[in-house]
Amino acid sequence: MSRVLRWALFPLLVTLHCGQALAAETGKDLYKTYCWQCHGMTGNGNGINVRDMSVQPRNHSDAKEMSARSDEDLFKAIKHGGQSINKSVLMPPWDGVLSDDEIHALVRYLRELCQCRHG
């Protein structure tokens, strides 16, 4: 590999490495950080913030409710907020802090919590 090519590729390799590092958070850790506050420590929808909410957060451990939602809908609700799937404004958009890879990791973790699949 020529020296010029190596220097040209260096920023790309750094970017790829950083991208991997940013996606390294697990779904479980992300859920604890961003979702516990409303959906609760066990995902049952009873987080510390629910007391004065007009709409209660989704119970992620409810297999019946969760199997009615596709992975695409869950991804969309996390990324763009509840209103993007005609649900509550209280579910905010998380695209400002979570990468697509991290949102996919969260969707996989939601499937662990409900122990269910779509359909």
Binding site: Q37, C38, I48, N49, D52, S54, V89, L90, M91, P92
Partner: peptide
């Protein structure tokens, strides 16, 4: 703050009313 934007979910707007995180 509450109905249109949902910020009350996480922030109190008076002591003991609103979210706690």
């Amino acid at each position: 703050f509450d109905k249109f934007r949902g910020c009350l979910a996480c922030h109190e707007i008076e002591p003991g009313y609103g979210g706690s995180s």
